[in-house]
Design a protein around this nucleic acid. Sequence first.
DNA 1: ACCATACCGTATCGACCGCTACAGAAGTCT
DNA 2: AGACTTCTGTAGCGGTCGATACGGTATGGT
Lengths: 188, 188
Amino acid sequence: MAGRPRSFDRDAALATAVELFWRTGYEGTSVAMLTSAMGVSPPSLYAAFGDKHHLFEEASARYFARTCEGLDRAVELPTARAAIERMLEDTARAHTGAATPPGCLMLTEPRLDAQREVLHQRIRDRLDRGVQDHELPSALDTDRLAAFLVAVMRGMSGCARDGGTTEDLRGIAETAMAAWPAAHRERA
Amino acid sequence: MAGRPRSFDRDAALATAVELFWRTGYEGTSVAMLTSAMGVSPPSLYAAFGDKHHLFEEASARYFARTCEGLDRAVELPTARAAIERMLEDTARAHTGAATPPGCLMLTEPRLDAQREVLHQRIRDRLDRGVQDHELPSALDTDRLAAFLVAVMRGMSGCARDGGTTEDLRGIAETAMAAWPAAHRERA
DNA sequence: ACCATACCGTATCGACCGCTACAGAAGTCT
DNA sequence: AGACTTCTGTAGCGGTCGATACGGTATGGT
């Protein structure tokens, strides 16, 4: 007992919403902008996604899932250092993509602090594994280093929003890596 | 030929506006919020400050001037390293003050990129002086290091907005200082 | 005293905000 | 076919946005 089928591609419309929220943020994106960009009338949008807040949650979750895919690939690298270097390089490129808005939705949107906390934990977990692998000194404060790295990524996002190039962001990333802890010594 | 005198303290009202823009940003602050917090009716506000955009410019300029005072004091320290350490410590405290909103207006507000550019230049200038003083290696890319430091400060501001404590921000600052270039060697 | 001037509060402007009532259209069911 | 369900576009809801018209009020100048 199905009714009239939806006349638009829900997934494509959601992708458009992601793009818009990414570019202008939650508060800065009106429902009129969304309906116009998605090619959907307001009632259709509300029927398909609920209210604006619910649409944003779905859009940001989609964005975050994509981010986590890259994160997973980086985490699998053999060393913590290589993993973090990969993350920073991914960040530099993702924040300055020609086809996407500058900066990062997750790192810019005030209300996405829960996602940022997950990012922090994922980084800290990889650092902890580096300690277990004797790649990093056991005395290392991994929580602190992870907080630093999140802060750097956030700074990179802001730099991109201010017009910074991929190379500008790489410069920040490479400078940050100079803060990497000294190699673990086998004998204390 | 003066008319009826202003019934409110313009400077105090401006300080209130700074506080409000600082806490909720330009877009997130309505004129109604401003008039209510400043204790001033809309026509009085418009007569004294022009439109909302003009008020924001005056408020952000005032905020920036205060920031620059601290910057001046830091820059005068004998070494570039001490100057930057002072800046980061000031940042950690200023972004987590109990009597002020968390984070930094200049580093958070998208449209204040010109102020951020000035901050970048001020930092680079101090680093250049460090190179001239043979405190820092002559091969150092001071522009790049300055961009890194601005990114770190921005990350600290974001961390503060997410509820980070002064100690959290200090951790980021101290970790960042580990990226400080190796001491200049007298003989290559 | 009286005018000119500049600020005061009230009440409101048109535009846009997020959101929805309504009626018609396009499907599946019996 | 006809009933039923769900999506469609139009048109508009109450509320808030930034900004102002207006008449009243407090000052200085003459």
